[in-house]
Amino acid sequence: MKKLTLLPLAMVLVFYLVSCEGITKKETKRINTEQTGYSFERIFVVEEGCSVDTLEDCTHVLLEYPVFEGEKMKQANSFLNHRMADILGFGDAESDSLVDLEKAAQNMLQDYREFKKEFPESPQVWNVRMISHLIYEKEDLVCVKMVSESYMGGAHGSLNVSYITFDTTTGSFVHLFDRIENKELFLSLAEQKFRRKRNLTPEENLEKAGYWFPDNKFRLPANIGVDSNGYLLHYNPYEVAPYASGPTDIVIGFEELKKE
């Protein structure tokens, strides 16, 4: 499968804004790739009266995600669907059925309207943006990078990156660390790179330095992805440090893991 070149965000928004009418403006657009393996779907829901220039001042939801074709990848589609629904607060952990994401987006806007009725003087503007694209397609693996940015009240918004890898022969989620042959070397490289990123010496105590590693024991992030350069490790805010510390990104090249 080849990577899809996505339209610039502004182009997508213009298309949706001029194509929709009503209390909310919405459009679902399937974009076919050169391959038959997957396509991309976009859902954009926004309050009436908004334009591209005023989008930051308008409550809106933007979803952009791959849809895989074929019976084998139904599980992958369900995984991505429920991940987005959960972020929108519309998930159902007990259901295997796909969530209507357009309805979930509209539900979020309705929640905002109810909030404004109760607090009409509030300057808050809610938004959720989830942009996903394929960053790796080789042999039996495909890796999706999902960037979700949201604000639904509070002191600040949320920005999270998820790497989601699937086995293309089964559609099941893959824990990449399970596929690493030399796990000890992988962990050692990850800790070395984390310390360098955070300007910590090899001997410095992680807990005393303000990082959330119980008993000073380094651990991998929840998010491990893969691209043509190697393995991608991403610590989201609040994962091992306060929000103000920001995220931490680490790359472990394939060649580094071949060293004895």
Rank of each mutant, 00 (worst) to 15 (best):
residue 1 M to S: 14
residue 2 K to Q: 11
residue 2 K to L: 00
residue 3 K to G: 00
residue 4 L to I: 08
residue 7 L to I: 04
residue 7 L to T: 09
residue 12 V to K: 15
residue 13 L to E: 10
residue 15 F to Y: 12
residue 18 V to C: 01
residue 19 S to H: 15
residue 20 C to N: 13
residue 20 C to T: 12
residue 23 I to Q: 06
residue 24 T to F: 12
residue 32 N to S: 11
residue 36 T to N: 08
residue 38 Y to N: 00
residue 41 E to M: 11
residue 45 V to A: 05
residue 45 V to C: 10
residue 49 G to Q: 01
residue 56 E to T: 04
residue 60 H to C: 10
residue 62 L to Q: 09
residue 65 Y to R: 07
residue 66 P to F: 07
residue 67 V to D: 03
residue 68 F to V: 05
residue 73 M to V: 05
residue 74 K to S: 01
residue 75 Q to H: 02
residue 76 A to P: 07
residue 77 N to G: 12
residue 81 N to Q: 10
residue 82 H to P: 00
residue 88 L to E: 11
residue 89 G to M: 08
residue 91 G to S: 15
residue 91 G to E: 14
residue 91 G to Y: 15
residue 99 V to P: 01
residue 104 A to H: 06
residue 106 Q to V: 06
residue 109 L to Y: 04
residue 110 Q to C: 05
residue 111 D to T: 05
residue 113 R to N: 06
residue 119 F to S: 04
residue 119 F to V: 10
residue 121 E to K: 05
residue 121 E to Q: 14
residue 132 S to K: 13
residue 133 H to Q: 12
residue 134 L to C: 09
residue 134 L to H: 09
residue 139 E to F: 02
residue 140 D to V: 04
residue 140 D to F: 00
residue 141 L to N: 03
residue 142 V to G: 11
residue 142 V to C: 11
residue 143 C to V: 03
residue 144 V to A: 03
residue 145 K to S: 04
residue 146 M to H: 02
residue 146 M to F: 00
residue 149 E to K: 04
residue 150 S to F: 09
residue 153 G to L: 02
residue 158 S to T: 06
residue 161 V to T: 07
residue 163 Y to E: 08
residue 163 Y to I: 01
residue 164 I to G: 01
residue 166 F to E: 03
residue 167 D to N: 14
residue 171 G to F: 07
residue 174 V to L: 11
residue 175 H to A: 05
residue 178 D to E: 06
residue 181 E to C: 02
residue 183 K to H: 03
residue 197 K to S: 15
residue 200 L to N: 04
residue 201 T to K: 14
residue 203 E to A: 14
residue 206 L to R: 07
residue 209 A to W: 12
residue 214 P to C: 03
residue 219 R to M: 14
residue 221 P to F: 08
residue 222 A to R: 15
residue 222 A to W: 14
residue 223 N to C: 06
residue 223 N to Q: 12
residue 223 N to V: 04
residue 226 V to E: 01
residue 227 D to F: 00
residue 228 S to M: 07
residue 228 S to W: 07
residue 231 Y to G: 00
residue 232 L to T: 04
residue 235 Y to N: 11
residue 238 Y to F: 15
residue 239 E to P: 14
residue 243 Y to E: 14
residue 243 Y to P: 02
residue 244 A to G: 13
residue 244 A to E: 07
residue 246 G to L: 08
residue 249 D to Q: 07
residue 256 E to Y: 09
residue 257 L to D: 09
residue 258 K to W: 01
residue 260 E to D: 15
